[in-house]
Amino acid sequence: MDDRRIIELFFSRKDSAITELSKQYAPMMLTICSNILQNQEDAKECFNSALLALWDTIPPQRPQSLSAYCARICRNTALTRYKKNKAEKRNDQKSVSLEEIGDILPSEQSIELTLERQELTKAIEEWLSGLEQKNRYLFIRKYWYMDDAKTLAQNTGLSTSAVYLRIDRMKKSLLTHLKTKGVLQ
């Protein structure tokens, strides 16, 4: 079923909306939850919370891209859960810190972001647009979808080492771009 029809099901408040959406996007949504939470049980709970959030927000929302909307809801839900887990210090020994885009900033004290979020997003998008498609894929999957290097290697046909290398280069390139744009002071 295509996205438009799934959204119509949501607007009609039919339970099948959830079923159809799950058929289409459950793997992606579960992957995002799992990438962030690193725990299958939490990921499933988070996925269910995300489904509920989708049910609650469509309508009134009518997303242009249902996949992107699902991804955003999942990511936000999982990140909220991750922060909560972290605050409660659950699985502290095993938990791995999320590698987020903000980690490219060299020093918390000496860096100040001069732009508001919208302008900052624009600067990042401008940089993303200038990347080769494969590099853009790697970067977004790594920092937005939180895929690990092995998965990225499998999905791009690159070796794991090449994935690490490319991402490392891109981090530096983004930092340079932000500096050039005067975003960082």
Partner: peptide, 10 residues
Amino acid sequence: ISDSFLTECA
């Protein structure tokens, strides 16, 4: 970041 980037990488 905009949906187009996310969709491209979905």
